[in-house]
């Protein structure tokens, strides 16, 4: 197995848009396996997009199962993923293997409905929320040449209070 080299910003290729996958052959399976290996070798390692390794095809892998006590689908191999629906928003802190030593606050949809093909070309639909939804949105951005630093919101005046606010709301109802 091979751990692929990661493109590191300011490498301009991270801003490239990736093309849809049209051939679901052994070569694709090999590529997916190498991407997963590369993802697991990284710090955190909950997601990777093919363009982070210089492969400009719409392939994403997300696996947030290492985070305790959250809903997830295990290891997701998402080929040509598309978000169909967005629901709510949340601020969260993100980092990226292609932007080392920096983390920042990003607003993402709290929950999404997603369609994607698997590595054999079959189409699946997923409903996901929280970390998994955040990771998928972050990785799909890579396919469109977007980094989380394109979506930064203020660190100083962030909205971490929002969660607490929601909790206390429930109590008073």
């Amino acid at each position: 197995m091979t751990v692929l080299d990661l493109l590191i910003y300011p490498d301009a290729r991270l801003k490239n848009e990736s093309s849809p996958v049209t051939v679901f052959d052994e070569k694709l399976h090999q590529c997916v396996a190498e991407l997963e290996e590369t993802m697991r070798a990284g710090p955190g390692g909950v997601g990777i997009a093919a363009p982070q390794t210089g492969i400009f095809q719409r392939i994403v892998i997300v696996d947030v199962s290492i985070k305790p006590k959250i809903k997830h689908h295990g290891c997701l191999i998402l080929i040509n993923p598309e978000i169909l629906e967005w629901d709510g928003f949340e601020i969260g802190r993100e980092g990226c293997m292609s932007v080392p030593d920096y983390t920042g606050n990003v607003i993402r949809a709290r929950a999404i409905k997603l369609t994607a093909q698997d590595q054999y070309g079959a189409i699946h639909e997923y409903d996901m929320e929280g970390y998994e939804a955040r990771a998928v949105q972050h990785e799909i951005d890579h396919l469109d040449g977007l980094l989380f630093i394109d979506r930064l919101v203020s660190r100083r005046h962030d909205l971490f209070q929002r969660k607490v606010y929601k909790k206390s709301n429930k109590k008073t109802k």
């Binding site: 955190g44 990777i48 293997m97």
Partner: peptide
């Protein structure tokens, strides 16, 4: 006073 964790997701 409100305390909340900052859970950084590295991808």
């Amino acid at each position: 006073v409100h305390l909340s964790p900052i859970d950084t997701l590295i991808m």
